[in-house]
Design a protein around this nucleic acid. Structure first.
Lengths: 213, 213
DNA sequence: TCCGGGCGTAGACAGTGTCTACGCTCGCCT
DNA sequence: AGGCGAGCGTAGACACTGTCTACGCCCGGA
């Protein structure tokens, strides 16, 4: 079994459990140590500061997110289908793992890594994902060359704009202002998803062209 | 002069100054009280809890943002120009007032208002702005009826998707992953703005149709 | 004049993150 | 075999935080 896991991993596990159930605000250093069954000074052996532990937990979140991406992408063949699956995974993750998503994009956690030399830095965790989106967008364009008379922005810009659109969708929906603006139930309640699906579809159509494929 | 301002306003002023200069992480209750020149128990007369004071500060941020909107909109006549000005104000505000922007969309600050009856609730501060965007999008469509063969999503969905795009752009750019992905200098350094302008233009073109007007 | 209520002060309390000193327990070397 | 040293976790101290409570002060009305 995973008995031989070091305390370092057990601390991250405890933090992941905490942030999934009780939100990002409950990630106190002492509370994580309690959940892991050790004293409050123990984490210091493996993480020089509280924010370093939070960074490690956030990295687990990014790893989980990319794992969901590859799991959702292998069913789809066309680049547009892959992008749609990616979009659904992204906003679905933000809604399902709300606390983790909030933690992953917190500036103070990021700033703690300002002077940390050893990779991977937290900010760069999103880089391979972005390059994947760029590749999918270029493939999508080359598959359907007569998309429009306009050439449109270069593919990296289009991919970045699409990614930002999904991110904003996830954030504003989880925050509650988008459900409120569209007259949908708040994100805690389940069945407002059709409105969200409409938003995701609108974002995909806007950045990839209407569903001509 | 504003000499007769009550302590309540002075506390909010001190908090705004703090969050503008030192970021959202420095908004301790005692620190705000120190800056206002009172003891740490004084804020309790006007704000039942720390988060209530943070909510009031965030509301000032929303008020400032909408003021910038109306200041930037009166120069433009066409709805597309107004939307472009609005977009630039939004991402410009997020970059210029990074700490305030972070505070305005924090979930724990929001949750403190969960059981607060008196309006305006913090989440609803973005509602009039959103309705304005909906009106501009519908006006833009009616001004240029032959935009595309497709009807596209209903205007409220299109407006929501555009708003989310701008929000995600602002957030990911300020967080640093978008500048890193596009090979631009980090958001603290000044002259990476042309890349950001390209992203904003791409978002506007995607949701409003290419610049045919 | 006296009184009462709004307003701010000051201290206590539990809890936090960080730092330091102290044991325990292995494995390695002589 | 015996001792030793390094790794690992414990426990306490320190400054600091947010909340709560009791206490003064000052000013306006009866």
């Amino acid at each position: 079994m995973e008995q031989g896991s070091s305390l370092r991993d057990r601390l991250i596990d405890a933090g992941v459990d905490l942030v999934m159930t009780d939100g990002a605000a409950s990630l106190g250093l002492r509370e994580i140590a309690r959940r892991a069954g050790v004293s409050h000074g123990a984490p210091r052996r493996y993480f020089p500061t509280h924010h370093a532990l939070l960074s490690a937990i956030a990295r687990r979140g990014f790893a989980d997110l990319t794992a969901r991406f590859v799991a959702a992408a292998d069913g789809e063949a066309a680049p547009r289908g892959q992008l749609r699956a990616l979009a659904r995974v992204y906003v679905g993750y933000a809604l399902e793992c709300r606390g983790m998503f909030e933690l992953m994009f917190r500036h103070d956690v990021l700033d703690s890594e300002q002077h940390s030399a050893d990779p991977p830095r937290l900010r760069e965790s999103t880089l391979p994902l972005f390059e994947h989106v760029v590749a999918l967008v270029t493939r999508h364009r080359s598959d359907d060359p007569g998309l429009r008379g306009e050439a449109g922005p270069p593919p990296e810009v289009a991919a970045a704009a699409l990614w930002a659109n999904l991110h904003g969708l996830a954030q504003l929906w989880a925050w509650g202002s988008l459900p409120l603006a569209l007259g949908a139930p708040p994100p805690g309640d389940a069945p407002g998803g059709d409105r969200l699906d409409a938003l995701v579809a609108a974002a995909l159509d806007a950045h990839l062209g209407p569903v001509g494929s």
